[in-house]
């Protein structure tokens, strides 16, 4: 990996522009968006809500499918973050029940961390806008049922991001996530440099 240029030049990464919001995860813990969830980590981020009958169950199942394959690549350095679009309804308890359906309610030994996030409506809205997970069409944006079935995967430190449709087959998703979010050459491309 080439060395970064002189550190005196400031960066304008997505990470630099995000507020360090306080959120609640499905285990009832308070977590900081930047400090705990993004900085120094590889992430896969998606929006959901527990009563969704549209794309959320499919997306969540797809994440459950690829979670095992991501562990040997990333270990603990990858987080999967599913944040709710209905923070007024989705309490940590409801999120925990939802997570249980995908085997993500408790920390697992050999699986990447998967957190379901809620918080104050303001905080969720700021996070959503900050990460850009909104639709330019305000009518579509106001309707949670019409949210996009996409995964925002990225490496906040390297400012590498990509939106992957969750409808991709699992093999392509794993390849995309590791290549975009990986820290090292080997993580990204599956071979030694």
């Amino acid at each position: 990996m080439p060395p970064p240029l002189a550190g005196s030049i400031p960066t304008s990464r997505l990470l630099d522009r995000l507020p360090d919001l306080a959120l609640l995860n499905h285990r009832g813990e308070t977590v900081r968006l930047v400090g705990d969830l993004l900085a120094g980590r590889a992430v896969v981020i998606t929006a959901m809500y527990t009563t969704c009958r549209g794309s959320c169950p499919v997306t969540s199942q797809r994440l459950a499918d690829v979670r095992g394959a991501l562990w040997p690549i990333f270990g603990r350095r990858l987080s999967i973050l599913s944040f709710t679009l209905e923070p007024e309804v989705d309490t940590p308890e409801k999120l925990r029940d939802y997570a249980a359906a995908y085997g993500a309610d408790a920390r697992a030994e050999n699986l990447p961390d998967w957190q379901f996030l809620t918080g104050s409506p303001t905080a969720i809205e700021r996070m959503r806008r900050g990460l850009g997970l909104f639709d330019l069409d305000p009518a579509v944006d106001r309707d949670p049922a019409r949210h996009a079935a996409v995964l925002l995967c990225g490496n906040p430190d390297h400012d590498r991001w990509s939106l992957l449709p969750s409808g991709l087959r699992a093999g392509l998703l794993v390849e995309g996530i590791r290549r975009i979010a990986g820290f090292t050459f080997e993580q990204r491309y599956g071979i030694r440099a």
Binding site: T122, E125, R126, R129
Partner: peptide
């Protein structure tokens, strides 16, 4: 959009 006017980074 929400309270984006105050929040949008």
């Amino acid at each position: 959009v929400g309270d984006a006017s105050a929040a949008d980074p």
